[in-house]
Design a protein around this nucleic acid. Structure first.
Lengths: 187, 187
DNA sequence: GGGCACATGTAAATTGTTACATGATTGT
DNA sequence: ACAATCATGTAACAATTTACATGTGCCC
């Protein structure tokens, strides 16, 4: 019960169509909340029915019409109420941790190859975050709007950066451990 | 499609009943893979039907009978095949990040209180992990079994510890940011 | 007697994933 | 011509969550 909230936040930051939202869930918001376009369209329709968002049909040349969504007062109220609720412990599904513990009963070297690939992905993600930080949050155009939107986006991004750095260090630890076990059992 | 694998790993580490598995998913395994007893019973039944695990009815005095599950050869093969598959990028649902970005459009001080509570939870979780590490992975009973089960459990635990430490530092950053915004807009 | 731990389930509702479907424009 | 991007959806299925359901033994 929170895709609704992610959509509300994204639309408050910048109104747009379902398609545009789906694009954002591939990037910025998507780094901490995944959703497919099918989900987004379905939920958006319900939110429109409940009066949380209002749609405006925008005819376009050369492209299909799009429905431009903006948050309605009722949606704003829902978001505000949600901010007062306790933060739920996130439900974790950490594939890799399961695999690592499973490696004791299988082939550790097979896992090592996968971990190396995975490390690469996180390394690229860190570079991507750092580039985004440089682009959006440094230099003379320091936001400092009264509402703090830019500062809050920045602190979330710093969280992503910290997460990736921690992950990379841990993956090195994992690789060293797998290597040690492999060396002992491998011959 | 991986609760099956988490159950296989847990049963390989130590066979047991559905109930016992459900307990473990509240603690050790549960820190990186959540599942309720309803899910576990359902999946376990399917896995038994597919010959991945074998059940043995254990009559007990004073307690209802329980079905003691152990991994069958077919299940072992499934796990092994899974270890060779690429590691899927975990699908993130990070409630807090959404809330933080939402705070720009609501009441930052309301969020501050929730973040402080949340920080407390993670602080306790870190203490819990560190206690577990001290209990299970230090001292003279250093595991060093040939299969590396203990070492792999340890490296996963170290990941949890690193995650909690990173999270606590980030939450301090978040609180400082919220405080700064509140001071500017609050009067 | 009340509450907790053990032990296993069913049913309903909600969410999330995967596959299919359509149709226009822009670039190669 | 063909692929990619824009733009919106339906349908079927799988997974997850929440609520309900039952029964024993132990401890206070």
């Amino acid at each position: 019960m929170a895709l609704e909230h992610a959509i509300l936040v994204s639309l408050l930051e910048k109104p747009g169509s379902g398609y545009e939202l789906a694009r954002r869930f591939d990037r910025s918001i998507g780094y901490f909340w995944t959703a497919t376009h099918q989900q987004i369209y379905r939920v958006l329709k319900r939110m429109e029915g409940d009066g949380w968002v209002a749609a405006r049909e925008v005819p376009q040349q050369g492209k299909p019409d799009k429905k431009h969504y903006a948050v309605a007062p009722a949606g704003h109220a829902v978001l505000d109420a949600w901010l007062h609720e306790p933060i739920e412990p996130e439900s974790v599904r950490h594939d890799l941790a399961v695999k690592i513990r499973g490696a004791a009963f299988g082939d550790p070297s097979a896992l090592m190859r996968q971990v190396e690939r995975y490390r690469q992905v996180h390394s690229e993600r860190l570079a991507h975050y750092l580039a985004g930080e440089l682009r959006d949050f440094t230099g003379p155009d320091a936001p400092a709007e009264p509402d703090g939107m830019g500062e809050l986006q920045h602190v979330v991004l710093r969280g992503g950066i910290a997460y990736e750095r921690m992950t990379l260090a841990w993956l090195d630890d994992v690789l060293a451990t797998l290597h040690r076990i492999h060396a002992r059992t491998g011959h």
